[in-house]
């Protein structure tokens, strides 16, 4: 699902583009700081009944899950915090292996057994409810997740902030390239929400796949869609110029309203309603709103940032 862009030669700007500063100061840095705070609270908990702290940390992660460049991509940090999707079931297998180990070194373990998605199994899956060593492992994974979140945040503040803010370096030759990176994060995030968070449980009409929903055990599946759309809207509004802003906002609100309409269906939290024809239509409509939004951005916002998505460059193999 990762995709790409043909970068047109764009005019070099004489002055720093204010959108980069705004994106850093009001979107990227505060959201990664929130993730560090949430994982700190999770790690500091004195019991293993940390469902509430975990929930706050999961919300914080979903809000940055589209920012997959720079600090998150070093040492597999993002994977170590969030290993999903997992169609082969590597997470429960890794957890089972960690539970048989006396003093497992989480930071050396498979990424499938680390982070917030692994913790969700321990906290919410009945298969792990009374298993020996569960409490210790929850605490160990929480500590490891906090260290990972802290590493990402520090790397952003100490290094990558300057890389993105003061372009003309090896990574971003100019502000246009930095804006293109942010735009790519925005559209990749929308694709992930439509293809993975919604597309996986939807499956096909004849074969819905509710068991494939993200964080279904904790009932966060639908809320993750809403949280991601809210965060992506924040970034989109920063990138959109004054002219596009009302349109961008209206389209995001349409999608978020549809998520609200799905939420009004009883039992929608884990998206298992995709099996019920009448309710399924609402989830499909939500996915459709996200797809339309994505198409609108690539048609109207992308070109404005010098991003033309070509037939081969967009989707190669």
């Amino acid at each position: 699902m990762k995709f790409v862009f043909a970068f047109m030669l764009a005019p070099t700007m004489a002055f720093a583009d204010p959108r980069i500063d705004v994106a850093l100061d009001t979107h990227i840095l505060p959201r990664f700081a929130a993730l560090t705070d949430a994982t700190a609270a999770l790690a500091a908990a004195e019991s293993c009944e940390v469902e509430e702290e975990w929930n706050t940390a999961a919300t914080a992660w979903i809000g940055v899950s589209h920012l997959r460049f720079g600090p998150t991509e070093i040492d597999n940090r993002a994977f170590a915090l969030a290993f999903w999707p997992d169609p082969r079931g590597a997470t429960p297998k890794s957890l089972a292996a960690l539970l048989t180990d006396d003093a497992p070194a989480i930071s050396d373990a498979s990424v499938a057994g680390r982070g917030l998605y692994a913790m969700e199994f321990l906290l919410f899956d009945p298969a792990f409810a009374n298993i020996e060593g569960r409490c210790d492992l929850i605490a160990d994974i929480a500590n490891d997740a906090h260290l990972t979140a802290l590493a990402i945040q520090s790397d952003w503040e100490d290094r990558y902030d300057a890389v993105l803010r003061s372009t003309g370096n090896e990574i971003y030759r100019n502000d246009t390239e930095a804006l293109q990176e942010l735009y790519k994060a925005l559209t990749t995030g929308l694709d992930f929400t439509s293809d993975m968070r919604l597309g996986r449980p939807l499956g096909t009409f004849d074969r819905p796949r509710p068991a494939r929903a993200e964080m279904r055990r904790s009932g966060r599946s639908l809320d993750n869609v809403r949280v991601s759309l809210t965060s992506l809207e924040e970034l989109a509004l920063i990138l959109a110029g004054e002219e596009l802003m009302p349109d961008v906002e209206a389209r995001f609100e349409k999608a978020i309203d549809q998520a609200g309409s799905v939420a009004s269906v009883v039992g929608s939290a884990d998206l298992s309603i995709v099996e019920n024809v009448a309710d399924r239509i609402k989830v499909e409509a939500l996915q459709q709103r996200v797809v339309e939004l994505r198409a609108f951005l690539s048609q109207d916002l992308g070109p404005e940032l010098g991003v033309i998505e070509g037939f081969n460059s967009l989707d190669g193999d």
């Binding site: 699902m1 990762k2 597999n76 994977f79 997992d86 169609p87 990424v111 293809d195 993975m196 796949r209």
Partner: peptide
């Protein structure tokens, strides 16, 4: 990759 996750890459770290 696994068709259940479309073209999503599942093992980049390894």
């Amino acid at each position: 990759t696994h068709p259940a996750s479309g073209r999503e890459k599942l093992n980049i770290p390894t």
